[in-house]
Amino acid sequence: MSNMCYSKIKYIHPDCVRFFNDEKTNSLSVKLDCKVYNHVKVYRTSPISYPTKYISLRVGTSSSEETEIGIIRDPDSLPLESRALIERELDKRYFIHIITKIHSIKEEFSFLYWDVDTDKGRKEFVVASRAHHRITEYGENGRIILDLDWNRYQIPDLRDLDEQSRRLFYRYIYW
């Protein structure tokens, strides 16, 4: 295999890369090995297992043309401003509510009505009950909940919830 030519993941060395903000369009530009890429998008390759590592830098205007410039193993190895830029781009791609407390869950017909505290404030939402594919596992002890509009709510670790919230959760969701 070693002498054959096949595509390999390109890992970006922290020293060979520079990040800067494109003022005009407020987007991310990356200079890598003397080449400049504009409108760079930033994806998590494994949002659940490695949420802060293995960040994929991509260019291209549509999904079929998109290509990867490379992967950053650990953004923590980058200077602070670069990290802030990556963080900003990640915030643009991911919009997730982290549930911190469950006030109530009510079941009516085949819907669950939730009233929760999240990192983005108190929210109410509706999930089809018994829709197993809408409430799925997230890591070891967490859950991802997709409401009827496909908005995302996450509980990173059920054990971190307070007793009452957890009990409410388990009363209706037991998979």
Partner: peptide, 25 residues
């Protein structure tokens, strides 16, 4: 469409400019 929310974008020159963001609602 991104993860949990979407952007309205317009094509200017050779790239897509983000106009605004909205949740899936």
């Amino acid at each position: 469409g991104r993860v949990g929310s979407s952007f309205l974008e317009v094509e200017v020159d050779d790239y897509f400019q983000e106009i605004l963001r909205f949740s899936n609602v």
